[in-house]
Design a protein around this nucleic acid. Structure first.
Lengths: 239, 239
DNA sequence: GCCAACTGATCCAATACTGAGCCATTGATG
DNA sequence: CATCAATGGCTCAGTATTGGATCAGTTGGC
């Protein structure tokens, strides 16, 4: 089978066949470093890049793997590849070099804090808050894609924080949610979020909201605790 | 003799079928942001939008769902979709700033979290951590200026967080401490930190460290709780 | 000749979009 | 009051796109 379409390129390509990966890698890095592709920008698909550069898709993909490993980009099946958000740690000058909280740390923190919010929640949640909780549960159950589900799951836990009317807790929940959107978390979650697991979560979410509606402090705390324990179990195993 | 058999070559023509949602979303956002569609303005129906943009109704509806989730629009069955009224406290962490946590909020948060750290502290504190705790207590008692005292008091609570070996908790404690250094907090503290109060705090600090050294989970939790309750009482009165 | 990099190809899984249909609520009309 | 058209809510099957993965073969430099 003759390779008709790329005859003119064959010679040039073959000459540098060993530097193709480096070539495309430099191109992408340049775009990102120069700011032409800001955080969140969608990269061309690997198939597009392969075609435009006259390189095999496999080579492009290995290059993208490297870039992903270097946290310069994030890739998601069915969606595309994106420039990573806030990649090189835009830390405050005050205190840096503190390692990020690991998924295990974050889950431990959540188990420490969120069940304790129960008392404040049942004490201060308004009728509007209850509606918002209902909406989160309903929408998360209707979510068809992993992304939609995650959005509403996050919203549920954030709404619980809002119920406490404590701005410190709301801010804390936002910080936690920000962690949950880091690349390694996303991979961890996607690996473990099967249909069965999701159904379990939905039941647990319902239980939490039901307890809040009854303003039952103890049931709320226990429902939250059970749910988070299950999440940790699924994400990290044992405990 | 084209070779177009491999999927690597068949790209391009309809490659934008992926971005329809983004397209219409940008259009609506532009109208809202520019003020062309003010609060309460009725959007075209989803069927209209789908027809005008040549996009499937389902896709339009997904986009509207996103906009609703972002609180940019509200939708009502049988009536239509409307630009949200900006007044009900924009809740999107992305583009607006939340009011800071008040001193009451922060103390509530601390009472929620810090006693719960007790179990992790007695489980994971190293001998070096114990020494650090001792140093904090000693230095705070020797402090001659208000400023020095505050520094070592902060350090003590931060060291307790360090004992948990949980980076999320350490980060949280840093956030809390940052709040405590805001102008209104400083005034609050200076007004209330009398010699008597300071002596009480010192005793309570000693009690906490002693409980940690004995690795007594319950005593540690209770000692922390008592201390924070006292601090809250002194800062804010009642409760 | 050997080895690492690259090629070309094929299949899979997740996601986005399309097209079609039906239901539930609303508000106007008769 | 009954009816009905408009409109958002929801589901389903099918298509297209995209990253993930693997394998056998080729190439270029040592």
């Amino acid at each position: 089978m003759a390779i008709q379409s790329s005859d003119q390129q064959v010679i040039g390509v073959r000459e540098r066949a060993r530097r193709q990966g480096e070539r495309i890698r430099a191109h992408i890095r340049e775009r990102i470093d120069s700011g032409a592709w800001g955080p969140g920008h969608k990269l061309p698909t690997d198939r597009e890049l392969a075609r435009d550069f006259g390189i095999a898709r496999n080579t492009v993909r290995r290059t993208l793997e490297r870039l992903e490993h270097e946290r310069l980009i994030v890739r998601q099946v069915g969606r595309g590849s994106f420039v990573a958000t806030a990649e090189p740690a835009p830390r405050n000058p005050a205190n840096d070099s503190r390692p990020d909280a690991s998924p295990a740390d974050v889950m431990e923190l959540r188990l420490l804090v969120e069940p304790q919010m129960a008392e404040l929640i049942v004490l201060r949640a308004t009728a509007r808050d209850m509606d918002a909780l209902d909406e989160c549960v309903r929408k998360s159950e209707l979510a068809r894609s992993y992304h939609d589900y995650e959005r509403w799951d996050e919203a549920l836990h954030r709404t619980l924080a809002i119920c406490t009317k404590n701005n410190g807790l709301i801010a804390l929940m936002d910080t936690i949610n920000a962690q949950r959107n880091q690349p390694d978390w996303i991979n961890l979650k996607k690996r473990t979020l099967t249909q069965t697991v999701r159904r379990t979560y939905q039941e647990q979410h319902r239980a939490i909201v039901a307890a809040v509606k009854k303003r039952d402090k103890d049931k709320t705390r226990e429902a939250i605790r059970i749910h988070l324990a299950e999440v940790r179990q699924n994400l990290l195993g044992e405990h």
